[in-house]
Amino acid sequence: MGRFHLKIWQIMLGGALAVLLTGQIAPADAFHAVDADVMIFLFGMFVVGEALVSGGYLSCIAHRFFAGVKNPDRLVLCILFGAGILSALLMNDTLAVIGTPLVLALAAGRRISKKLLLLTLAFAITTGSVMSPIGNPQNLLIALHSGMASPFITFAVYLAVPTLACLGITYGVLRWTCRDDFQPRGWEEQPAPACDARKMIPAQVALAVILVLTLANVVASLVTVTMPVSLPLIAIGAALPVLILSEDRTAILRSIDWCTLVFFAAMFVLMASVWQTGFFQSMATDGMFTSVPALLGTSVVISQFISNVPFVALFQPLVQQAGSGTARLMALAAGSTIAGNLTILGAASNVIIIQNAEKQGETLTFFEFLKVGLPLTIIQIVIFAGWLAVVG
């Protein structure tokens, strides 16, 4: 806006302050609107993500994983499935922060287009995060507010297969739209990063806690159809080893993404105020919620204007009021998430990737992203619609 550059968290905070100061929502209602479970979960996952980076554990894992990958095709496939599956466990915004410098280093060492690997990372973490209740914030909102007894099982049954298919399709679309960037241009051996085993222990323990507690939930869901360990408890359980054992706990706490936490707190206040007006309820039609293809399309389009997390915060109650069933909730999760593959503005993780890339002199333009994202999103909508029609 002129000479002023406003960040997304500042815009959302301004909206929340506006409705508070103008009396559109009472302070008590605003306080209760902030979802403590979501805030606790995000805080815990941000602590773990920062520990993985600062302790050097992620760099060591990445070097071992990519050391022998010289061919551009193999590298893109490894990033797609590696980052995609990892985002289902660590949340896509976390992977956006820690993955950007990694792919830029890989591109420089292998003389591959940096734009190609940035696009690959963005599409990988957006698409891969669809299949898990902890893969992204909007899935977390759906899992926590829908009353699902076993969200890990539900998301896996409805969304794992099409998500893996979409990751494979993403490679094909990248290969088609960016074919010139797949030409090999030489390769240089990269030195192994310095790995301090003692500093990596807290991050290793945190990652093990996430895996063990997630597995315990999955097993328990199969036996009792309940989730014994809540999602916020998983995140806090993983963050505690870092906060207790790490010598760098103060630096980690300073470095976590506090702005995103402010964004979510403000979003809850603003969306609660908007919900009280009945504006979106009056615009919504039954066709939006009873048809899976319509819900997928609506989610993708509207998320471009208000981003996917606020969209889910507003529309999930409408989907549930319509009594639309699990398949429609999964369509809401899938549509609002793959909206991030259409344009840069569709997901916060895209903005995070570009902001981090610009610090190192690289970027992606709106049309560079759209050139790949438009055909990719259309194909992915068809895949998810077809699968949900079968299982729903």
Rank of each mutant, 00 (worst) to 15 (best):
F4C: 11
L6Q: 09
A18D: 04
T22F: 14
G23Y: 04
A26G: 09
A28R: 12
F31A: 15
A33V: 09
D35K: 14
A36K: 13
M39C: 03
L42R: 03
G44Y: 01
V48A: 00
E50Y: 02
V53M: 08
L58N: 06
S59N: 12
R64K: 14
F65R: 04
F66Y: 11
F66Q: 10
L77N: 03
L80R: 09
F81T: 11
A83M: 15
G84E: 09
L90H: 01
M91Q: 13
L95G: 02
A96T: 07
A96I: 06
P101S: 08
V103D: 10
A105Q: 14
A108E: 13
L118M: 12
T127E: 12
Q138R: 09
M148C: 02
M148K: 04
P151D: 01
V157Y: 15
Y158L: 03
A160P: 00
C166T: 11
G172M: 14
L174N: 05
R179E: 14
R179G: 13
R179P: 13
E188W: 09
A194K: 11
C195G: 07
D196W: 03
I201T: 15
A203P: 04
Q204T: 10
Q204P: 04
A208F: 01
L215E: 00
A220N: 14
S221I: 07
T224A: 13
M227A: 13
V229C: 08
V229T: 08
P232D: 06
G237D: 00
G237C: 04
A238N: 00
L245Q: 08
R254T: 15
S255D: 15
W258R: 15
L261V: 14
F263H: 05
F264K: 10
M267A: 15
M271G: 03
S273Q: 10
V274G: 07
W275N: 13
G287D: 04
F289D: 05
P293I: 05
P293S: 06
T298G: 15
I302E: 13
A313I: 14
L314V: 08
L314G: 01
L318W: 01
S324C: 15
S324P: 07
T326S: 07
A327H: 02
R328T: 13
A331G: 09
L332A: 12
A333S: 11
G335M: 00
I338R: 02
A339H: 01
G340Q: 00
L342R: 02
G346L: 00
A347M: 02
A348L: 11
A348M: 11
I352C: 00
Q355G: 10
Q355N: 13
K359G: 01
Q360W: 12
E362Q: 12
F369Q: 00
F369P: 11
K371V: 10
V372Q: 06
G373I: 06
L376W: 03
L376N: 05
I378G: 04
W387M: 08
W387G: 05
V390N: 01
